[in-house]
Each structure stands twice: as structure tokens, then as C-alpha cells.
Write a protein that binds this DNA or RNA. Structure first.
Lengths: 184, 184
DNA sequence: CGACACATGTAACACGTTACATGATTTG
DNA sequence: CAAATCATGTAACGTGTTACATGTGTCG
């Protein structure tokens, strides 16, 4: 739900062809991982199907240009202006919550692993200074997220130390009737 | 990549049937939004196809129990112990980066909108106290993430004020040759 | 010439979401 | 009885990822 809208937004700047779009996308959004070109073409097809872009002319070099439509322009504006959808399931929190109730699991190990990953990420960010504004923005976002994660991990460790106030439950789900196992 | 593994992890506690799995998942992971049951069955089919679970007996009440296999047990352990995959594209950062280079866009509006959302989320979290450990964990994660986001938004606003040191680029991509437009 | 970047696509797959169909059991 | 909940599934769709097929142009 991010690439599609981003490509559309870029097309608001003027007609582009596929390869060019990938370039602009990666430059302007400081993409961490390269974007597979195939996806650009697939996304363009969907955008066209939905009436947000039109397949325009092909220039002498064979480049197939896509243009944004008025509907597309409206959609892009709306997307750019509005807040991002609320956060989905947090995989880390989910995982730790599960690790706490599973007999074989080792929550402390998970915390340790995750902490070292976050620390490494943070260090990596502090090491290089950004060349563009985009790089700066996404880098900062990453770093702040990593810091928040570290804080959270610390808090979890502390909670784990007390542990009892909440009463862990490592019981297997009952067989037969799904009689709610007490987790409070 | 979270539900599948979570269901598998829960099955490590003992055989479950679909409906029961949904219940346990929502309880144990303090799921914010309800999980569609259909997805449980679909996921179970895939897990079975991949040899991580087996369709076990059906009890007198007609409940179809699934059991985890040894392979599945190994996979679950591995997942639970290891760190979460590195963060993907940050939609908010991407969006703001684009908003900064698009002529029509209003980065300040985006920041404002996002800030009010984050603030609301944070307030909502502070309002209710968690009943279970799981709720506490995921709630804290959400809150810390929201705080980090607010920090980031502040920093972005500050950057926007200076703005010039990085030299914004609102030029459309060149036609023809994708001659890299200077963004530094 | 041979390797590599440019350029356009197609196909298969994974995961997640929603909606729908169907029946049994419980409960007001 | 009627409505809600429990329970098992199926089907369609959207986005994203990877790999592949194919051809042109450029450069050492």
C-alpha cells in the first residue's frame, strides 16, 4: 500500500516510463532495498486498470510513458495529505507475548537477540551521515524506532523480573470446549 | 508472516481446532483487531501443506484438531528465538520524503495530521490500564512507537525550517534519458 | 566479441483481508 | 421459534516478492 501510492505521487511530477519510475522512487524515498522493476510494471498496469494513470506515447527510444489522470491526481493528493494507517500487529510484541506463555521458549534469549539487532541498526545509522534530505528523514525514523525498541526491550526485561503480578499462563488450550483459560 | 508463525507456536501447546486457535491467538497476543476465522483455516491448510502440522482426529463434537509435527516444532522454536526481520519501508517517512519534493503537496499538513493521530493513540493508551501481561506488552510497544513518531515529527519540522542546507528538489523527472536529477 | 546496464514485460507464489455458504448448538 | 454463537470451510481480491524471458544499446 506504499509503492503503488508512491509511484502515483511521482507521476504527478510528469510522465515517466517504468525504469525511470524505479529510479525516481529509490532516489526520492531513499529506498533501503532496491525495488524490483517488475513490480513497477505490474503496479502501473493496476493503476491504469483503476483509471489513475494512462499509458501514453512511446518515444523514439521505445520508452513507454505513463501519465497521471485527474482521478489519479486527486488520489495522490489525498494520500499525501492524510495520516498513515494505524500500526498493524507488532510482530515483536506478538512474539514476545507468545514466548512468555510457551513452555519451551526462552523470552530472555529473544530479548537479547532483538536488542543486539537494534543496537547494530542504530550504530549503523550513526556511522554514516546522510547525503540527501530523504536519506536523513528515513534514517532518523529508523534510528528513533530502534531507540524506542530498545527502551521497550528494557521495560520488558524489567517486567519479566517481576513477572508475578500478572500471573503467567503456560497452560495448553483445553481440549474439547474452548473454555477460556485464565490468562489474567 | 506473523499469523502463520503465531498459530504454529500456539499449536506447540497442544492440538487445537480452528475456532479455538483464533481465541488463543487473540488472547495470548492481545490482538487489537479480531482475526477473521477464515484466515485460520486457510493458514492451517498451508501449514499442513508445508508439513508443519497434521490434520488430526475429529472429536465427538466435530472439532477438527490439528497437531504440530516435529518439523513444525523446530520451525516454531526457531521463529520464537530469533530476532524479527529488519524494518521494511517506513510508509510515513516515504510519504513525507515525497511530499517534500512534490509541488502541490503540503508537508506541514501531513506532519500535523500524523501528529494528531499519534497523540490520540498515545492518549488512548494512557487511558486504559492493561488487564493481562500481553496487553501490557503490546500496549507499551504501541505507546513507545507513538512517542518515537512524535519525536521524529518534531525533528522533521525543525529540518523543514532550515530546509536549505539540503537543497530541496521539486523538479519533475527528465523526459527521455533518465539523467539523474540532482537531489543532493 | 562479451559483459553489463537499460528496458519491458509475464508468471508464480505468499500473505493478508473480506465476504460468503453451510450447518449445529445454544439461548432468550 | 428466532437469533446469536460456534464451527468449518471456500472464493475472490490486493499488495508485494522473486524469478524468468526477451531484446537493445553501450563500452572495454
Amino acid at each position: 500500500m506504499s509503492i503503488r501510492q508512491s509511484l502515483l505521487a511521482i507521476l504527478e511530477l510528469g510522465p515517466c516510463y517504468g525504469y525511470q519510475l524505479r529510479l525516481e522512487f529509490e532516489r526520492r524515498t531513499a529506498a533501503p532495498s532496491p525495488l524490483n522493476v517488475g513490480q513497477v510494471y505490474a503496479t502501473l498496469e493496476r493503476l491504469e486498470r483503476d483509471g489513475l494513470v494512462t499509458k501514453g506515447e512511446t518515444d523514439s527510444a521505445g520508452h513507454v510513458f505513463y501519465e497521471i489522470t485527474d482521478t489519479g491526481r486527486r488520489a495522490a493528493r489525498e494520500w499525501l495529505t492524510g495520516a498513515v494507517p494505524p500500526p498493524a500487529r507488532d510482530e515483536l510484541a506478538t512474539k514476545l507475548a507468545l514466548a512468555l506463555t510457551l513452555p519451551g521458549a526462552d523470552p530472555a534469549a529473544l530479548i537479547a537477540a532483538q536488542r543486539s539487532r537494534a543496537t547494530a541498526l542504530l550504530a549503523e545509522h550513526l556511522a554514516r551521515e546522510p547525503a540527501t534530505l530523504a536519506e536523513r528523514l528515513v534514517g532518523d525514523a529508523l534510528a528513533l524506532a530502534a531507540e524506542a525498541e530498545l527502551q521497550w526491550l528494557n521495560r520488558c526485561e524489567a517486567l519479566l523480573a517481576e513477572a508475578e503480578p500478572y500471573g503467567l499462563d503456560a497452560e495448553p488450550p483445553r481440549r474439547g470446549r474452548p473454555a477460556t483459560v485464565a490468562l489474567s
